[in-house]
Nucleic acid binder design. Structure first.
Length: 644
RNA sequence: GCUACUGUGGCUCAAUGGCAGAGCAGUUCACUCGUAAUGAACAGGUUGUCGGUUCGAUUCCGACCAGUAGCUCCA
């Protein structure tokens, strides 16, 4: 007998060799039906796993992340089985579960059409109804290869696994067998509520040098209602897409003849940009930043010193032609070397440091044509850029200061809770991308990890995501499609100070290398505006709203009163417009609501007589009449508290 | 850059190998109106661009441009 510690520290005895599924069954039929996998002493295991020693066991259902993954991974096998039945020549690549579903990659002559996707989905329904038992088995490498002889991608995977010395693991359901480490459900009947959402291209092993396969995405839930709710939520999310809202509400537009990745900010977008920009520059000044204003282009010489010419040339817009003996310039893809040049105009004492340079900096990057996306990924953008030149002793406190400033600002924008943190490290095997020696990288990364841990940040680590010149703290955010992007980045640069021969004179009168922190405070204005529009579905908080209120006289009689009101509100710093069109009040209000204007100020004879305004809030509706000064005070307080 | 889809007045969408249509927005006129659309009239398009097939192309084919999702790359 073995002792198994279950949820709530309940200990029960079982026969040696009892499977996780059997334990679940002994605890109740409901749990058995819902069980997707188990966790034995913290390690995820298949339901078929036999327990042979005392252990702690957790039964994972769909509510658990591991359970959900097993559930959807089983769905991905059903997808592959359906494809194999309908398209026997399709070659199988891989098919994992992902955050909100699963996918499977196939090598097929022609990518699947929507009609074919529907047929595959119908076949999956059949497979579900067949309630095929899913069996697990292992084979030695040579037999495994025999079994998968017609699957070149599987053979490649087997060869890789072979190095570990372990037997090769398979799962079989009816007429379909797949190379797979599991875990999986016990039969295909559990997966009833699923949907194939799209078919796209994806490179084998995520490498663009490899063949592009056909990837089918799908999702699955235990109940049809949950699936419907999820799909509904996806549709709802799409309505918040900044690319839709931003164009509808006239924040930005694009033009075929201007070019890809070159959005035009319209009056509302430009106003929002200005609000954010003033906020950033004022806030940074408070925090001891000094502003620079540097050229949008420079000779290639500059980028040769910084290393960008070698590492980043394809990403730059280059002007001039070297072969014609003309000077070659490039639009700047970053601000670093410009601010370094300012630093180097004089010899600095340790007493001068830290120096915190900030610049509202417009950058140009020649992104590949397939990368552009609304305001999130563009070819020209403006970033709240900055570089801190610090002594080694100041590195930690200055880094902390940067992160705290970011958090304060993200809090005021209302985005703080949507952020995740990523520690982006170099890839020692990628000699092409990264400069410098392993020793410097490891040192710098250890310093950074130490700082992040002291800050108490919860972060993930990502190999190969560092800049070519140093490790990064990337602050990530997801768009309405669930796609993650970097909103903000803070980098420690141990190399470029060397390239630019930057020094400071320390207490001992010796010239030493400073550290440089590259950082942004709210990121690129375009991208941040996009995420704000999505966060608020266009209904920006009062302090950010390009138009904060619209004054709406009911008839011509209130014309003069309305104009005076607009004047007074503007004198009090409010962004106000007058809607004196000859339209009914209901019509004006409808438009104001659709434009997501925070306040609509209705003026009729009653208000005019009493020196009041009837205030309508976009979210709370008619708030009744109030004195003008009371409204000004109320709005001022709302602006002051920002998004908190 | 790769895979797929899409492109019709300012916007949302309809239609067809044979004269391109609706709603909203716009303009004009009337109405001076109390919290999500007053009525009428008018105007607005070389169907993304350039080629090809065809008696005839907006529709079919090709290239390019742009947009969308995914991959790769990246702030």
């Amino acid at each position: 007998m073995i002792k198994i510690t279950l949820k709530g520290d309940v200990v029960k005895e079982y026969d040696n060799g009892t499977s996780i599924a059997q334990v679940a069954q002994s605890l109740g039929q409901g749990l058995f039906k819902a069980a997707c996998c188990g966790k034995v002493d913290g390690k995820v295991q298949d339901l078929r796993f036999e327990l042979n020693a005392d252990c702690a066991l957790e039964i994972c259902t769909f509510d658990d992340d591991n359970g959900r993954r097993a559930f959807r991974h089983t769905a991905s096998h059903m997808l592959a089985q359906a494809v194999k039945r309908l398209f026997p020549n399709a070659k199988l690549a891989i098919g994992p579960s992902i955050e909100n579903g699963f996918y499977y990659d196939f090598d097929v002559e022609k990518p699947f059409t929507n009609d074919e996707l529907a047929k595959i989905e119908a076949e999956m329904t059949k497979i579900s109804k067949e309630e095929l038992k899913i069996e697990h088995f292992t084979l030695p490498v040579d037999e495994a290869k025999k079994l998968m002889a017609s699957e070149p991608y599987k053979l490649e995977l087997i060869d890789e696994h072979a190095a570990s010395g372990e037997a090769i693991s398979f799962y079989k359901q009816g007429d379909f067998t797949d190379l797979c480490a599991g875990p999986h459900l016990l039969d295909t009947g559990k997966i009833k509520a699923f949907k194939l959402t799209s078919a796209t291209g994806a490179y084998w092993r995520g490498d663009e040098k490899n063949k592009m396969l056909c990837r089918v995405y799908g999702t699955a839930f235990p109940k049809a209602a949950e699936l419907a709710e999820y799909l509904e939520k996806l549709e709802e999310a799409k309505k918040r897409d900044h690319n839709l809202i931003g164009r509808q509400l006239k924040y930005f537009t694009t033009s075929d003849v201007i070019g890809q990745g070159l959005p035009l900010l319209m009056p509302k977008g430009a106003k929002l940009f200005q609000i954010l920009n003033r906020y950033v520059e004022d806030k940074e000044a408070e925090h001891g930043y000094v502003m620079t204003k540097t050229p949008f282009m420079a000779k290639s010489d500059l980028y040769k010193i910084s290393g960008h010419w070698d590492h980043y040339r394809d990403g730059m817009f280059i002007l001039g032609d070297e072969s014609k003996d003309k000077e070659v310039y490039a639009l700047r893809p970053m601000t670093c070397p410009f601010q370094y040049t300012i630093y180097n105009t004089e010899l600095h004492s340790y007493k001068d440091l830290p120096i915190r340079f900030g610049e509202t900096s417009t950058l140009f990057r020649n992104e590949s044509s397939g990368e552009m996306h609304g305001l999130i990924r563009v070819r020209q953008f403006t970033i709240s850029e900055g570089h801190l030149v610090v002594t080694p002793e100041q590195l930690e406190s200055e880094f902390d200061g940067v992160v705290n400033l970011i958090k304060e600002m993200m809090g005021e924008l209302g985005l703080l809770d949507d952020l995740t943190y990523r520690f982006s490290k170099w890839d020692p095997d990628d000699k092409e991308k990264y400069v410098g020696t392993a020793e410097i990288w490891e040192n710098c990364q250890n310093t950074m990890r130490h700082i992040l841990d002291d800050l108490g940040l919860e972060y993930t680590e990502a190999v190969g995501e560092a800049a070519f010149y140093g490790p990064k703290l990337d602050i990530q955010i997801k768009n309405v499609h669930g796609k993650e992007d970097t909103l903000i980045t803070v980098q420690i640069d141990p190399f470029l100070a060397e390239n630019f021969d930057m020094v400071f004179v320390d207490k001992d009168n010796a010239k030493k290398r400073p550290y440089i922190i590259h950082r942004t405070s709210i990121g690129c204005y375009e991208r941040t505006i996009a995420l704000l529009l999505e966060k608020y579905a266009g209904a920006l908080p009062l302090w950010l709203a390009p138009v904060q209120a619209i004054v709406m006289p009911i008839s011509d009689r209130q014309q003069e009163y309305a104009q005076n009101l607009v004047k007074k509100l503007r004198q009090n710093g409010m962004r106000v417009e007058l809607d004196d069109r000859n339209e009914k009040i209901g019509y004006k209000i409808r438009e104001g609501q659709l434009e997501k204007v925070p306040y609509m100020l209705v003026l009729g004879d009653r208000e005019m007589e009493n020196g009041e305004i009837a205030v309508r809030s976009r979210s709370e509706g008619d708030k009744g009449a109030m004195k003008i000064d009371d409204f000004i005070a109320m709005a001022a307080e709302e602006v002051r508290t920002k998004a908190k």
